[in-house]
Design a binder for these strands. Structure first.
Lengths: 261, 261
DNA sequence: CGGGGGCTTGAGCGTAGTCAAGTAAAGTGG
DNA sequence: CCACTTTACTTGACTACGCTCAAGCCCCCG
């Protein structure tokens, strides 16, 4: 869900990139400078776009995916109520998606990492239902939705891809509802770690090594628990020998037992 | 979200229909018989299809929306794991959407009523993530997804409609996550009643009269509470004079106070 | 190396869960 | 239509899980 397997000697950038893929080759990648996006030459296109596009279609992408936006840690990519115009494909880093209810209470309903797509919450109403905040210095490619929708009419593959994105979001949320509705604190934390682990594994890193990008409080908010409870459960799992913890670095020792919690 | 404002003297069928619209005019509407669907002549087309379709496009709908499926109370419209082939537009009645986790625990993550569309959970994986069960004798129009997707490539309006459907589902789930993550039992029940009330109102019935279609246990499951707790909270709200309850018939007396709970 | 924020741990409390009994409503069959 | 069975709901007493408040520790960063 966010992730990451830090091989012991990982360099910070490797560690942060989220995907074991080469960085883009564009010039001028200053931290806060907006850069041009070029899907046609992007090494990670397979992560955020469908595979079976023709060469012509790929260069067509370049006509509307023009910009990559850097976002510093703690800064929003968009805010609740912002007019919905774009999807954002995360290129590097990670984000949390936060909604605020009428009482001002915040709820984190998703964490996103590199390769995943943000902004789907705006499609139905025309404005964003929540805000997307960077958990670390990150960057995202800006995909204008109107142009994407037009492109979908031409490309079956792109249409499929879009539908899949939205449906995946639905399934992800359903899993969270399941967690919040049926699990006890210890199970929630265990499930969270395993989910994390799986995402790490999918990106080619060792499944047992996690480097959290979010605080205990954010984890608690996401899991419907208080930060103290998250901490207690992590300690409990440690005492039982299922995990080893050093601050935001977590090693999963016994996958089977963790799944059985 | 499910059910309904019973004007005191409502007939059973009116009561059950879910929408203040005339029934379809097709012949042969035996309870368990599958009937032909005809979007072109359907009085409720505006509820489940986009408004701005041309006459030609509407008759095009008839080429693939062919069947209406009756489902008896307690029976599934589809099961978890079923191959995903169709969306289902609910014509009459109501459904719950249930997912089952690996431990066999069930979680209701949505209730659906007439006019709403079921089955979105299957798009990403190709098979349904959960099952849709009728809360009462119901019927749904079968919309083959492949054909719908093809139609979307031709009609911008239909494409928009589909995207809106999926995004609405995302927003709905996000609201449930918010409820489960941040609210106390009394607030959850109050929010549930208000949500119900709003849907009732949108369908043209008085907002203050609710006729629940689901049991306390189902409400509790949906809200992440036990049935006893739901019952206690309903009693509490009654004692405070915010609602009046007679079994599955609920009258909201004080909307403002209910919202402030 | 010192300061500060994030994290851990403890004690006590409150909310919701569990178990159980009793009541109301909804089916079922004569 | 009524008696009977079954299921759904309500209420109470008790328990336990997670929250609150508070103190202290450990990283991480400057």
């Amino acid at each position: 869900m966010f992730y990451q397997a830090p091989p012991e000697a990982a360099t910070p950038s490797f560690f942060r990139s989220g995907l074991p893929l080469p960085m883009l080759t564009e010039a001028g990648s200053g931290a806060m400078k907006r850069t041009m996006a070029r899907c046609s030459g992007c090494a990670r296109r397979s992560v955020c776009m469908p595979l079976d596009l023709s060469a012509a279609q790929i260069s067509r992408l370049d006509t509307f995916v023009r910009e990559t936006r850097p976002v510093s840690r703690g800064q929003p990519l968009y805010l609740a109520g912002d007019r919905f115009q774009n999807f954002y494909a995360i290129r590097t880093g990670s984000f949390k998606f936060v909604t605020v209810n009428r009482d001002g209470l915040e709820q984190i309903s998703s964490f996103f990492v590199a390769g995943e797509t943000l902004g789907l919450d705006g499609v139905s109403s025309g404005s964003h239902a929540g805000e997307a905040v960077a958990l670390e210095d990150s960057s995202a490619c800006v995909i204008p939705f109107a142009a994407l929708e037009a492109f979908c009419a031409e490309s079956r593959a792109m249409q499929r891809h879009l539908h899949r994105l939205m449906s995946e979001e639905i399934v992800r949320q359903a899993a969270l509802v399941m967690l919040l509705g049926t699990m006890k604190a210890e199970q929630r934390v265990a499930a969270f770690l395993l989910n994390l682990s799986e995402r790490v594994g999918r990106q080619g890193y060792p499944r047992s090594e996690l480097a959290l990008r979010m605080s205990r409080e954010e984890i608690g908010n996401y899991l419907g628990l208080k930060l103290e409870t998250v901490s207690r459960m992590l300690s409990k799992l440690t005492r039982q020998g299922l995990v080893e913890i050093r601050a935001k670095r977590i090693r999963i020792v016994d996958f089977g037992a963790l799944a059985r919690v």
